[in-house]
Amino acid sequence: MPDSISPTGTPNPKMTARNVSVYYGDKKAIDNVSIDVDRDNVTAFIGPSGCGKSTFLRTLNRMNDTIPSARVEGDIKLDGEDIYSSAMDVVQLRARVGMVFQKPNPFPKSIYDNVAYGPKIHGLAEGKVELDTIVERSLKRAGLWEEVKDRLTDSGTALSGGQQQRLCIARAIAVDPEVILMDEPCSALDPIATAKIEELIHELRGRYAIVIVTHNMQQAARVSQRTAFFHLGNLVEYGQTTDIFTNPRETRTKDYITGRYG
């Protein structure tokens, strides 16, 4: 990693990654990446398709564990705790570090049951009244309550694409996570639904550490305070979003931002 990259983006990071490499079989997909995830800001990962940004995102809650050929080297910590330690409960880790995927994936259950699912399996609610409170609070935080409060028994899959994505965000929020990872959460959505998700990200900032992978550079500029540029499995540059977009240090970053490749 070039000396010009400072991984210590914040004096009080929520997550730290040091010298992380990811392999799929013999193929190295991520090469020696070090980065901090800010506790109070939105961090965007940008870069061309196949550059490793989504692969790296998945290392932050061990989603790569589900791929038999995947191997992760290096050190990733959540509040100083090694998430790849044998003592780490992966189910609990994924409750603490929630994920919202590219394509909305509500369960084939009611809107209510989609949001209640996590709190039920993690034992976060004493009874129906407490569960009702969690569901309402999560849907409100996801900006969906007013649209669905009178049809909580309807199937989550009957909602529009943008509503489904906000339902998935509500589902992630319901287990009271500390970090929310978003893997291109707007790529399947129309501009109006995208604007609602971006507005929601602004509202959630500070309550959760948020990392978003996006192909859309304008979106990264709008929603994030820190941006990491990935290229060919390497972290090329990481810094304040305004600096990355207006005064990048690295030639490769400048070339990507100005549309010379990607």
Results as ranks from 00 to 15, higher is better:
Ser155Leu: 15
Val175Trp: 04
Asn234Gly: 10
Ser34Val: 00
Leu159Arg: 07
Lys120Ser: 11
Leu232Ser: 13
Gly239Phe: 13
Thr8Ser: 12
Arg205Asn: 04
Thr157Val: 13
Val236Tyr: 08
Thr8Met: 15
Asn105Gln: 14
Arg137Asn: 14
Gly47Phe: 06
Thr242Pro: 00
Met99Trp: 02
Cys168Gly: 13
Tyr261Ile: 01
Ala172Arg: 01
Ile121Leu: 12
Phe245Tyr: 12
Gln164Trp: 08
Arg226Ser: 11
Glu198Ser: 12
Val33His: 06
Ser155Gln: 14
Lys196Gly: 02
Val90Tyr: 04
Asn41Ile: 01
Arg205Ile: 00
Pro7Ile: 10
Ile111Gln: 02
Ala95Asp: 02
Leu144Gln: 03
Gly9Leu: 15
Val175Met: 15
Pro248Ile: 09
Ile212Lys: 11
Asp150Lys: 14
Lys28Gln: 15
Asp113Cys: 01
Ser187Lys: 09
Ala221Pro: 02
Thr133Glu: 14
Leu189Tyr: 10
Gly233Ser: 10
Tyr112Cys: 08
Pro108Gly: 12
Pro11Leu: 05
Thr153Trp: 08
Lys53Ala: 13
Glu178His: 05
Val33Glu: 03
Ile244Gly: 01
Ile180Asp: 01
Leu78Cys: 04
Thr194Tyr: 06
Val90Gly: 03
Val211Gly: 04
Arg260Pro: 06
His231Ala: 05
Gly52Pro: 10
Asn234Cys: 12
Gln218Lys: 11
Pro185Phe: 00
Ala170Val: 04
Leu232Arg: 15
Ala70Pro: 02
Asn32Ser: 12
Val135Lys: 05
Met182Thr: 05
Ile197Gly: 01
Thr241Lys: 04
Thr55Pro: 01
Arg71Ala: 14
Pro104Lys: 00
Gly206Asp: 08
Ala95Val: 06
Ser224Tyr: 05
Leu159Trp: 13
Thr43Gly: 05
Asp89Ile: 08
Glu203Pro: 07
Gly25Glu: 09
Ser224Gly: 06
Asp79Phe: 07
Leu181Cys: 03
Asn12Cys: 13
Arg226Asp: 13
Val72Asp: 00
Asn19Ile: 03
Ser224Leu: 11
Gly143Arg: 08
